[in-house]
Design a protein around this nucleic acid. Structure first.
Length: 117
DNA sequence: CTGATGACTATAG
DNA sequence: CCTATAGCCATCA
């Protein structure tokens, strides 16, 4: 990879890959975790460029309101909701309670250990 | 080059 | 809760 963008996309993928099943993170949260500051839009752009069949858990990324940012009418949007529900994430009035499901990096590592072990 | 467009968000009213 | 605004920045027409 040569473009700085490729590097950014990689960072985003790596961060998203750390979100535990059954939990979610917001675009802005991923941006900060990836060292992108407030560039939340870049996160969405990076996820959009994921190849089909990617192992990256893109479905665990939602917007700051706890909603899926893809159109309900879209195939991907329905796929995202389906995957989240199958992981135990509950939707109420089309929204996810972030206070309950939001991924908290430091706390998770404290409870479940480092990312790989 | 210019302007519009987003898998976004924080803030203000 | 809702609308409006302003940052943000790679892409695309």
């Amino acid at each position: 990879m040569k473009s700085p963008w490729a590097e950014v996309a990689k960072r985003v993928r790596d961060t998203v890959a750390r979100i535990p099943a059954g939990q979610v993170a917001t675009y802005g949260q991923i941006a900060r975790e990836s060292g992108l500051g407030r560039r939340a839009r870049m996160v969405g752009r990076a996820l959009r460029s994921l190849p089909d069949g990617s192992e990256v858990p893109w479905h665990r990324v939602v917007n700051a309101r706890g909603q899926i940012s893809l159109p309900d009418s879209s195939e991907a949007g329905q796929e995202q909701r389906r995957r989240l529900e199958s992981e135990g994430v509950v939707f109420r009035a089309g929204r996810i309670d972030l206070a309950e499901y939001r991924w908290r990096p430091s706390l998770d590592e404290l409870l479940w250990g480092p990312p790989d072990s």
